[in-house]
């Protein structure tokens, strides 16, 4: 597992530096500062949880990293490259993939076609050139997300939980190095959530999933279902009002008084 990762690192300058480094990131919507000078980093194959009450600015951070929104200030460096100002597709092709909190399927396309689209992106093609049939690869992504039996249904027929899994299948299909999941457990029932937690851990450990290959990708996971989230992540960042108010291991964070006040005080711990 370490061999391919070093191959990917390429330049020696990258060793030791974090995979993703966000500094002073700021985003305003009119008068509202949704993200206020946020700095954090994610190490290689680290799983980071991002939590905070509704409207804290978590999804905005995801969209800024994915290049869907443009930051007002700050920088986002991925493997030493500045992502700010880059087109979303270039960011994906560098190895960052994310899911949307409000799922965004290609509604009238069958599920399999939904996942074939990212398989047609340059990154996926480059990495799997020996796979002539992208459909096979798309099927593996569906298999991984546990919705392969629905492959031929159009996306508008899916339930909310299934759409969440479709989002994950689409993100995984590009074989990213950094995977960002925005509320993957939202709308899933307990047994579905257990399955998903298991898949995420499997993905993180790395290995082969049919034609898909993972080298133990780094992840940022956002969710309100802390009972699931805290079991998966190595480290937690807590946001409130656009700022990071605490960070640490899951055990440390649940004991932090600021966090309890800002977050856990208001919402029952799931």
């Amino acid at each position: 597992m370490t061999v391919p990762r070093q191959q990917q690192a390429g330049a020696g300058a990258e060793t030791g530096s974090p995979l993703l480094e966000v500094t002073g990131l700021t985003k305003r919507f009119g008068g509202l500062v949704a993200v206020n000078s946020v700095s954090f980093s994610v190490g290689r194959s680290e799983v980071v949880g991002l939590i905070g009450p509704n409207g804290a600015g978590k999804s905005t951070i995801v969209k800024l990293i994915m290049g869907i929104l443009r930051p007002d200030k700050g920088s986002i460096r991925f493997r030493g490259r500045e992502l700010r100002g880059m087109a979303p597709w270039n960011i994906v092709n560098l190895g960052v993939a994310g899911t949307f909190q409000n799922t965004r399927p290609f509604r009238r396309l069958p599920i399999i076609a939904n996942v074939m689209v990212p398989c047609l992106a340059p990154r996926a093609r480059r990495r799997g050139e020996w796979v002539k049939r992208i459909e096979v690869k798309a099927r593996d992504a569906l298999e991984f997300a546990g919705i392969s039996d629905l492959a031929l249904e159009p996306a508008y027929q899916l339930s909310h939980g299934e759409l969440k899994r479709l989002e994950i299948a689409r993100a995984v299909a590009t074989e990213p190095q950094l995977l960002i999941l925005d509320e993957p457990f939202g709308g899933l029932n307990p047994s579905e959530s257990d399955l998903l937690a298991k898949s995420i851990r499997r993905l993180h450990r790395g290995g082969r999933f049919g034609r898909l290959h993972s080298e133990g990708m780094a992840m940022i996971i956002i969710d309100h279902k802390l009972s699931y989230l805290l079991r998966i992540v190595d480290r937690v960042l807590v946001m409130n009002f656009g700022q990071i108010i605490a960070s640490g291991t899951p055990d440390e964070v649940v004991l932090d008084s600021d966090v309890i006040e800002a977050y856990l005080g208001k919402e029952e711990m799931a």
Binding site: G67, A87, P88, W89, N93, F100, R104, F106, R107, R170
Partner: peptide, 24 residues
Amino acid sequence: KLGLVLHAIREDEVAARASGINTS
């Protein structure tokens, strides 16, 4: 395959971009 990408752009351009497709 080109048609599939074009379809996807019509359905949701932002999602197509986030799938690594150079929509422009």
